[in-house]
Amino acid sequence: MKYETYMQNIMKKFHHHFDIRENYSLKDYNFDYLAEFHERSEKYFASKKIVLDGMENNEYCFFTYVPDMGLSHFNHLTHILEDALLDIVEPTSEHMSTLFTCIIIAENIDDDHTISMLKKYRYSKSFLFNFKGWAKIRFVLVDLSSEKIYTSKGGERLKKVYDFIF
């Protein structure tokens, strides 16, 4: 499948629930798309005027097209996202979770070592022992040539989502 077709199929599914931006720059990196999802739920007592607490869950999906994917590119992305995460997340008492998902769409993958490093990657951060929520970074690597999906630790459940696009 071609990159353009794959992305069109993804965006068709995402636009119902996500706010989508094209050409999004983060640090020095330019992502093709950013899809954002923000959810806020509130608990109240008696009437809706008496709000007890709120819960905020956020997801940011960063899409990037990389014709030839290699380890150095992957490492570069991890640094960018790890730095950005600390800038973007606001760990208030109402913050519950923030997920960064980086979807790398590649035509070719340099070697198996890149795949193996991506599969081993895990990043999560807890704010005040989770009382102020937590944040995670997950990677999804889409190999267009073999139509295979690889995910980092904690992102296993995403495999089905991106596999389905094929």
Binding site: H95, L128, F131
Partner: peptide, 10 residues
């Protein structure tokens, strides 16, 4: 203190 900190998580 827990009431200020985000007790709703637990």
């Amino acid at each position: 203190g827990l009431g200020f900190m985000g007790y709703a998580k637990v």
